[in-house]
């Protein structure tokens, strides 16, 4: 006897809206001289980001990609010019109202851009999607400004005890321990600051702590900051972008440090992507790139409140 679980989790109108959204996205990039590309979903290596776990084949020989970043940068190093991709990506154990272990990502790279130029381009995309009025821009706040405004604390100089006190003052009761300062910053971002961002118009947060650079370049200064940004709309994180790190030696050091963190945390570590590192050694053009969650964008465009409402079949029904 069927309980109805064979049915789609999204209604037909929503699936039609998804179709239209994909058409607008492709038209935007095609008109701007981008090449649409496809890269492998199953690779011999995977991300070593300590906070992202890859799904692997049962024999452990291949990993489902958590983002097409490495392969797309190999295309850039091979001289592709500006490229974009719309694909499904996979992240183990990420499931909830705003997460599905398999989701749709729009990722694009533009040689010659830095992170601010790329934010300008996202402004134009959001105008085409009628998220922003014609020729308007998103709000832009540095990571430090966001913390100052909401919590009156400097995220670059505050220590763990201050961040803990700040979280407690916000009524957050943490069960267990956090092992580093970045985890406390992440907690405040995820629980307090993020949900209040982009309520009127979408908001960019940029120039992250150098310790959260991921694959972005670090701009020297006091403090040094990572040329990275995130886009928030209605309190939901929609996109993450970098002025991309092109230094192969620095990239290798970061990945090795990430592997050590994973091992220390008792996590398995996929092989480091040597093809990606070879591409950086060959020479990645100075570029900026960003990944945007299509399912979340669609959810917000339609005024829905959870991902299952915009997925043909959510994780439970997949």
């Amino acid at each position: 006897m069927s309980d109805g679980s064979w049915r789609p989790s999204a209604d037909l109108e929503t699936l039609k809206a998804r179709h239209r959204l994909l058409a607008v996205l492709r038209a935007f990039f095609n008109a701007r001289g981008y090449l649409e590309v496809e890269t492998p979903q199953l690779s011999q290596s995977g991300t070593v980001d300590p906070n992202i776990n890859s799904l692997a084949l049962a024999d452990g020989s291949r990993y489902l990609h958590s983002s097409p970043e490495f392969a797309m940068k190999r295309l850039l190093a091979a001289g592709s010019g500006p490229i974009y991709q719309i694909c499904r990506v996979f992240r183990e154990d990420e499931s909830g109202r705003l997460h599905n272990p398999e989701f749709s990502l729009l990722e694009w790279y533009r040689p010659g851009f830095d992170h601010h130029a790329l934010m300008n381009e996202i402004d134009s995309l959001l105008c085409d999607l009628q998220v922003l009025p014609e020729s308007k821009s998103c709000q832009r706040l540095s990571y430090a400004e966001a913390f100052q405004q909401r919590l009156d604390i400097d995220p670059h100089v505050a220590d763990m005890a201050q961040l803990r006190g700040c979280a407690e003052a916000q009524g957050i009761v943490l069960q267990g321990e956090l092992c580093d300062k970045d985890a406390w910053l992440d907690l405040l971002m995820a629980e307090v600051i993020g949900p209040g961002l982009g309520l009127e118009q979408p908001c960019f947060i940029y120039d992250y702590p150098a310790s959260q650079a991921a694959l972005s370049r670090i701009r020297p200064g006091d403090p040094p900051v990572a040329e990275r940004f995130e886009l928030y709309w209605h309190g939901v994180e929609l996109a993450n972008g970098f002025h991309e790190l092109c230094d192969a030696a620095e990239q290798r050091r970061r990945m090795q440090a990430d592997v050590q963190k994973r091992l220390a945390a008792g996590l398995v570590s996929p092989p480091v992507d040597e093809y990606f590192l070879q591409a950086l050694e060959q020479g990645l053009p100075d570029c900026a790139g960003v990944a945007l969650g299509i399912d979340r964008l669609l959810m917000l465009l339609l005024g829905k409140s959870s991902l299952p409402e915009v997925l043909s079949f959510d994780w439970r029904r997949a």
Partner: peptide, 13 residues
Amino acid sequence: ENEFVKPGKGQAF
């Protein structure tokens, strides 16, 4: 009630 929250990159809660 259980909600999975995660900043863009970084620690999940």
